[in-house]
Design a protein around this nucleic acid. Sequence first.
DNA 1: GTCTATACTGAGATAGAC
DNA 2: GTCTATCTCAGTATAGAC
Lengths: 209, 209
Amino acid sequence: MIETKQKILNTAERLFGDQGYAATSLRHIIAEAGVNLAAIHYHYGSKEELLDEVVMRKAGPVNAERLALLDRYEAEAGSGPLAAEKVLEAFLAPVFSGADRSPQFVRLMGRMYGEGLMTMIVGRHFQPVVNRFIDAFRRALPDLPDEELLWRIHFMIGTMAHALFGPPNPRPGAEPASLDAQGVVQRLVTFLGAGFRAPVSRAAGSEEK
Amino acid sequence: MIETKQKILNTAERLFGDQGYAATSLRHIIAEAGVNLAAIHYHYGSKEELLDEVVMRKAGPVNAERLALLDRYEAEAGSGPLAAEKVLEAFLAPVFSGADRSPQFVRLMGRMYGEGLMTMIVGRHFQPVVNRFIDAFRRALPDLPDEELLWRIHFMIGTMAHALFGPPNPRPGAEPASLDAQGVVQRLVTFLGAGFRAPVSRAAGSEEK
DNA sequence: GTCTATACTGAGATAGAC
DNA sequence: GTCTATCTCAGTATAGAC
């Protein structure tokens, strides 16, 4: 069938989100999808490339909404400066609550981050968007040295990724789901906004800058 | 030999730090250590328990120094309140620069976090220390609601863990090493200190956009 | 108590027939 | 395009030699 490729993708998305990437074997996917093992390699090449497709299909709308929000906020600000908090909100809100308001994306991203696949995913699917936001932060915080700005964006991504994991102090084995998206984004924007606005401390490194 | 157990541990520590946990097969370890495959399971039970031992040996001194620093800062503060930045410093500095000033620990932790093993490791080896620091933060920020405090500690751990990865914007494939420990800790304390001190935003939980 | 040799199960990947 | 069969490598388990 022609839909073999789609059935694989849909089943993989569900199982990756439910059980994680490593815990989901290709043999499990083909059993649920009712296709042959070799079909995965024929259509996608490898397990990792299959994950790539799953992520891309979900990340596309999220990144589109991020850029749309950023454009909207910049338009609303007119010629004036855009608050760092608005840049943060444009970056964070679509991840937690945006796009098709699907908690599956949060679950999947949380899983991927928990399995150490986030670096790969960010590099492949999010880097252009991140670069666009680096510019926005630069304009929002013109007094911040560029090296410090990049570090703080680095910190922000770590915070966001960890927040995808779930609420604080979940008992081991708890499900990393059921986040109150609005509340988390609000907390993140407040916390990170203050961090971004913090004055640079003296002697933040022995190397020249 | 009697040192079989130690040779396994030392070799595992080196290879886990160099290549990561998943990428290091037990057969690779035994080849370099010059021991038999079954010796690992005899002495350690499983690959995961071997990792546990490796982490414990490294984490012990770090956690001890964290608590010692916290005690020292609290003693220096006398009866007065301890600044949140000092609590942060006691928590962060030993991870990046402390203990035996070994960059191997940073590398190993960065690797473990990158592979999604940090949750397990934190739960097993760091939870008591984290609980002690929760109390310290509570005293440093008595006006912060407890739920918000726990979220912010959650954020902090995510930021720290991500910072273990390395500097911002490393090209894919770059080594997550060679951090300027002092500079990173300084940047983290400044950034996170401001975040912890941020006033709680109203309606952090029920609004709709 | 320690260690070795070997076998077992399940994983991802691949070649080639249809 | 699809499927069967097979390959390599992983972690694990066990029987038995010192």
